[in-house]
Design a protein around this nucleic acid. Structure first.
Lengths: 348, 348
DNA sequence: TCAATTTGCTAACACGTGTTTATGTAATAA
DNA sequence: TTATTACATAAACACGTGTTAGCAAATTGA
């Protein structure tokens, strides 16, 4: 099936190719009867201007890339669909499409070159990267080459560059959790930290410490542990923590995210600790699975729709050279109280 | 920032542009020293061949479109991420990217034209459409114009056309459910049907009827009801069904999918019916939320990874003109027994 | 040494579109 | 009637790449 071009339309309508072009692009100086004649031929022959030609004249793709660098299985995470759907819908609301790409990691040169190629060959007008470690050199490189990069949960050092757009979890969610537990009377609080190359994990860690210090709570190293970001790693970390506490358990554990909190659930159950009667647990993310867990998980919820709309909107504004686009935005979380924390006597 | 082209590279390397091209495309008749000289200039200047030029020479996009026509909020459905991730990963395993697009419905001409434009302007090499009603005329039109369309859960009448590729739930999942309930002793079985323009709903309905007839079970119309495919619509339907049964409840209800089953849960709870003690419920889909519901939902699980890999693979094979690509594939489901069905005395 | 072949490269064309400039024609004004 | 303007359309160019045909130089064979 031969592809039909504007040349064919021109011949069929007995006009020149440029007249066809001006009809399609709504130029003023083409009389109604000519316009109708040409439009009729276009419809009859199902003619659509080819992107291949348009790109060459400087038109943009009206497409942004969405790169997800996720270790592990994301097909079943409830956050996954939220990230995708909100990015796609935010882009669509501005007339943009989304080219999606999943990468297992960004430690690997092959993957990095793949991403760079997609940016550089003009397949997308800008890209959003989720799951990059802080201060990724290849991201700086892309920006230096003039590309626009949107980043979710990402920290960068040095000066702001207008083509680097970020959205991050608000800095004080960790502190919020400690405040809440303090109000419930908890004084011995354990923390499971996430992956420290992820900005959110760093911030949460600092927030915990800030909160503990604010309330003059003792920070015991045996109650602190690195636990990654998956349910399995959280389970392993919690087992070690409980083991080494030797009955001097914290009365509450702050997990680095909801998945890790579910790992803590499992470890506690193996140790015969009932939640929240024997020990309280708090997550962070607002994962909807926490509604169905037993007990339902108290957590800090984030509005991912809000976050991705903010990011996508600012990225597209940057493509269109809108002035004064805000580069770095922090979105606050809110405490979602469910059933995994217990009120206790603060003096105990 | 001016875009750098193969012409610039040619000048910098003191060769002709075509030599640059043959270096990039791995032609044989270029000696190693020339190749290295050119490659060096390419690296130093971060040159990447532009898609805009390549497309013009007949290269394909190496991209497939993924169109999701979903009524309602899909951001929180656990199936959503599975559909996206499996499509993207299946495509990636063949070297293809995925352009994603979410549409609220396909009843609307504007949306249909949007999809047609994306196909026709050469932005994608083929497209997958999820959520289309059976026998959509615009899909036939696309196929007649030479486009390759992959369809999930879609029935079409008439002859097979090689550019129409489908994957569907296996025909007998409805029958499987009835067999299972029969084995548990159920004789009075109610059915909540889904959207009959969706192929899977049609097939399930027929499967139920076939199963009932096979076991000589009475099909009472007051036990059958149309209930859509969302939790809310399932809830409404279940309320009507329970209301009009006036104590002559079925002992088990087959929901058109898992979301609808959760609606049934809610309606039953309002009517003071405990699941599974007073009434059994079966879903279809294998939604992971069913693991956390109370009680965990017995359902027919489908391997969506399998389904999308099959679809994507065959679509890409068709793009590459592989002969004898299978057009229509059915993937069987498997009964996932959890806690929402009770063994009862068949004679009761 | 001369003809025949291989090697290494270039010039030229094709692809489909948007836009700018030029051209021809009809209507208007002088 | 002639000069001027407005209008409708066409011709020509630019965009970046891949590929084909062809040319000159270097190499081989006799």
């Amino acid at each position: 099936m031969k592809r039909i071009t504007s040349n064919d339309i021109a011949k069929l309508a007995n006009v020149s190719r440029s007249t066809v072009s001006r009809v399609i692009n709504g130029y003023a100086d083409v009389p109604p009867e000519t316009r109708e004649k040409v439009m009729k031929v276009i419809k009859e022959n199902h003619y659509y201007p080819q992107l291949s030609g348009q790109l060459l004249t400087g038109k943009l793709m009206k497409t942004i890339g969405f790169f997800w660098a996720s270790g592990g299985n994301i097909a079943n995470s409830p956050l996954t669909s939220s990230f995708f759907v909100n990015t796609i819908e935010a882009a669509a609301s501005r007339g943009y499409l989304v080219l999606t790409c999943i990468l297992n990691d960004l430690d690997n040169d092959e993957n990095i070159n793949y991403v760079k190629k997609i940016f550089m060959e003009g397949r997308i007008d800008a890209g959003i990267i989720v799951g990059a470690d802080n201060n990724e050199p290849f991201i700086d490189e892309l920006i230096e080459l003039g590309k626009i990069v949107g980043l979710f949960d990402y920290y960068h050092e040095g000066e702001n560059i207008s083509n680097r757009i970020t959205v991050n979890f608000d800095r004080n969610s960790g502190e919020q959790v400690i405040d809440y537990l303090y109000r419930l009377g908890h004084r011995k609080i354990g923390v499971i930290d996430g992956n420290m190359s992820r900005y959110s994990s760093m911030q949460r860690h600092e927030g915990y410490l800030r909160g503990m210090m604010k309330h003059n709570l003792r920070i015991q190293s045996k109650w602190l542990i690195y636990g990654g970001i998956t349910e399995t790693s959280g389970y392993e970390a919690a087992k070690i923590l409980l083991e080494r506490c030797d009955k001097d358990y914290p009365t509450a554990i702050c997990a680095s995210n909801d998945a890790v909190a579910f790992g803590v659930y499992k470890a506690c159950s193996e140790y015969g600790l009932k939640i929240p009667d024997d020990i309280s647990v708090v997550g962070i993310d607002g994962d909807l699975n926490g509604l169905y867990s037993n007990p339902p998980l108290t957590t800090i919820s984030f509005d991912f729709k809000d976050m991705f709309y903010s990011l996508v909107t600012r990225v597209i504004d940057t493509i269109n050279e809108k002035p004064d686009v805000e580069r770095d935005v922090f979105i606050p979380g809110s405490l979602t109280e469910r059933k995994s924390c217990k009120y206790i006597d603060g003096a105990m």
